[in-house]
Structure formats: structure tokens, C-alpha cells
């Protein structure tokens, strides 16, 4: 189910605790709704940036469905949080 929302994930330059997640273009809006449900929103600037926290992890959603997730211990934890958010219908 996660793959339905996520096109690709990659590590961010040099930062071992941060990752970039590229959401599928065709369901960006649905994905955003899912994220908003889970995140404790700290910034909401529609069309520019949505920032929030989830279980101590920092999420930053940018236009074109690019999501930055920070403060992770590794790929496994990224997978876990993405599964929590996107894993259920």
C-alpha cells in the first residue's frame, strides 16, 4: 500500500538522519490528506510548505509531493513511519 503513495526514497546529502520521499504525482493530494491526519502540524503554508511532527520525527512537505523526513535512525525506521502513515487504507 505504501508503494501506492511513494515513488522513491533517497538519503539526503551527507545527513545520516534525514531522507527525501517523493510521493506519487497522481495521488499527491490524497497523500497530503493522510499526512495531515497523522502529523502534529507546526507550519501550514498551503502550496509552499507543510511542516509537522510525528512520533518525534520531523516531516516537511514541499510542492510536487516532496517530503523530507528527519531524525530517523535509518532506512528501517523510515519504512516503519511511512508504513504507519501510508500503510492503511
Amino acid at each position: 500500500m505504501k508503494d501506492k503513495y511513494i515513488r522513491a526514497t533517497q538519503e539526503l546529502c551527507d545527513l545520516e538522519d534525514a531522507y527525501m520521499v517523493i510521493l506519487n504525482e497522481n495521488i499527491v493530494n490524497t497523500a497530503i490528506e493522510k499526512l495531515r491526519k497523522f502529523l502534529e502540524i507546526i507550519t501550514y503554508d498551503d502550496g509552499v510548505i507543510v511542516r509537522g511532527l510525528y512520533k518525534g520525527k520531523y516531516f516537511s512537505l514541499l510542492p510536487e509531493g516532496i517530503l523530507i523526513v528527519k531524525y530517523l535512525s535509518g532506512w528501517k525506521e523510515l519504512d516503519e513511519v511511512l508504513n504507519n502513515i501510508f500503510g492503511e487504507e
Binding site: C13, D14, I49, L62, P63, E64, I66, I68
Partner: peptide, 26 residues
Amino acid sequence: FEPHELAILLDQLNNVMVRSGLHCAQ
């Protein structure tokens, strides 16, 4: 702004391509 956020926004808003991170100089 976090550096990566800023770099992505510069790209998305006006195709301005800059590097963000530690630039291999931690």
C-alpha cells in the same frame, strides 16, 4: 528554513539549482 527545504523550494519555485547539506565538509 532547513537547508534542504530551502534548496528544494528554490528549485520548485524558479528552477534555481543549489546544493544543500554538508558539502562533504562536516
